[in-house]
């Protein structure tokens, strides 16, 4: 209990809120690396997921591969990339992308595959091109599940992005590493609380996005309160 009180005092200390090593700067870096990871992982996972979902092929193999990828310890992967690429942001970024891809990919293809096959068939029947079917029918209908994948990927990445500090002067992980080695558990817990707060904020924001998307896709689900 005492430690928590000290950690809160650490958070309240104005000196910790300014300068290049201050909480706002570190939080900004942390958010930036999270966003960059999700963006780069999304560039790979979203098109691949759409393709798998649309063709309804390869879900088994890709599912197994990405499922296995979830089991890779990110710290080990980071060390491996670091030994090849040297210190800096590249190694942690790659390791985090590997962490983010499975959730994004699974959300995308699962969302599209879950659509009643009659709907894309009907879209084709009225003369839509494959691209139109994907962009105007399948992706919008799958959006709540795709955002669900984004939500779980973001949750994992924002919490694991602390590892960026393993080889670079970046992110909230700096508080954790510095606190751990010097037995400054106040700083460590304070840093961890900021990560938790950040994670919760992102989680709530994405949950709201998800429910908005769900309401758009299926207006009937909320008609009692918001008549369309």
């Amino acid at each position: 209990m005492n430690l928590i009180a000290e950690a809160l005092a650490w958070l309240a200390e104005p000196a910790n809120w300014s300068g290049p090593g201050g909480i706002p700067a570190r939080t900004g870096q942390h958010l930036a690396i999270t966003a960059l990871t999700i963006l780069l992982a999304g560039l790979i996972a979203w098109p691949a997921g759409v393709l798998i979902g649309h063709t309804r092929r390869g879900a088994g193999i890709v599912g197994a591969l990405t499922g296995a990828a979830r089991a890779i310890p990110t710290l080990g992967l980071l060390t491996l990339f670091g030994l090849g690429l040297g210190i800096g942001l590249t190694a942690p970024l790659l390791a985090l992308i590997v962490l983010a891809i499975p959730s994004l990919l699974a959300g995308t293809y699962a969302g599209i595959q879950a659509i009643d096959p009659a709907i894309p068939a009907a879209a084709r029947a009225i003369g839509m091109s494959p691209a139109q079917v994907i962009l105007t029918v399948e992706v919008p209908l799958a959006m709540p599940v795709i955002i669900g994948g984004l939500r779980s990927a973001t949750l994992q990445v924002v919490a694991t992005a602390t590892l960026a500090a393993y080889t670079a002067d970046i992110g909230l992980g700096r508080y954790l590493f510095a606190g751990l080695k010097s037995r400054d558990y106040t700083e460590m817990l304070g840093g961890a609380l900021v990560v938790v707060a950040l994670t919760l904020v992102l989680e709530v924001a994405l949950a709201i996005c998800q429910s908005v998307a769900r309401r758009i896709v299926d207006p009937a689900s909320r008609t009692q309160r918001t008549p369309a």
């Binding site: 060390t79 670091g82 030994l83 040297g86 210190i87 800096g88 393993y166 080889t167 670079a168 002067d169």
Partner: peptide
């Protein structure tokens, strides 16, 4: 200047020295 490498002077640190990053 300072840059953190969290492996206690292990292989990542040696690699960074050899690369001239530090």
């Amino acid at each position: 200047a300072f840059t953190p490498i969290e492996d206690d002077g292990g292989p990542l640190t040696v690699k960074a020295l050899k690369d001239g990053d530090i």
